[in-house]
């Protein structure tokens, strides 16, 4: 057996295990849902439907492992991994300011993907967030969460 097929097989088992674990946990959690008296339950108990759906997913996952195991359609490149890390950075910076996080993410992603032209980076880092902020704030009357930058506008 080649290395790649061993790798695929492992991932196939891992994905199936994750799905089954998730559904089992959901069924376990649903056991703690409040039970309604017959007059109020309106046909089914609140836990019945989620349990039914999770049981179906488990059955289908077993069938999938047997007949149509998971295969990696596209290997994850380093750029994808880096982009995911930048999303984590975005989430972290959001606590300081949403638009600062957006501008930083946009510029960092663009540089990471190979863009080097300062004008384009300035466009992504300043112009786009600025336009989006004022479009949503002034036209759609959306109030964004307060932060370092948004406080300058909101006072």
């Amino acid at each position: 057996m080649s290395d790649s097929s061993v790798h695929r097989s492992r991932e196939s088992w891992l994905i199936a295990f994750l799905i089954v674990s998730f559904c089992s946990a959901a069924i376990w959690l649903s056991l703690s849902f409040e039970k309604m008296p017959p007059i109020l339950k309106r046909g089914i108990q609140p836990s019945d439907f989620p349990q039914l759906v999770c049981a179906c997913i488990i059955l289908m996952t077993v069938y999938m492992v047997w007949r149509d195991p998971v295969r990696v359609v596209e290997p994850m490149g380093s750029k994808t991994f880096g982009s995911l890390l930048l999303m984590v950075l975005f989430v972290a910076v959001c606590s300081i300011d949403l638009f600062l996080a957006l501008a930083l993410f946009a510029v960092c992603l663009s540089i990471y993907w190979g863009e080097r032209r300062p004008a384009y980076l300035a466009f992504l880092g300043f112009v786009v967030p600025f336009i989006v902020f004022f479009l949503f704030d002034q036209v759609f009357k959306i109030r964004f969460p307060r932060g370092w930058l948004t406080n300058m506008w909101y006072g």
Binding site: F105, A106, L109, S110, E115, V132, F136
Partner: peptide, 15 residues
């Protein structure tokens, strides 16, 4: 360029 388009898509997605 993809390097310009997709960061913009992300900004619009989040907002």
């Amino acid at each position: 360029p993809t390097q310009i388009l997709w960061p913009c898509v992300f900004i619009f997605s989040v907002v």
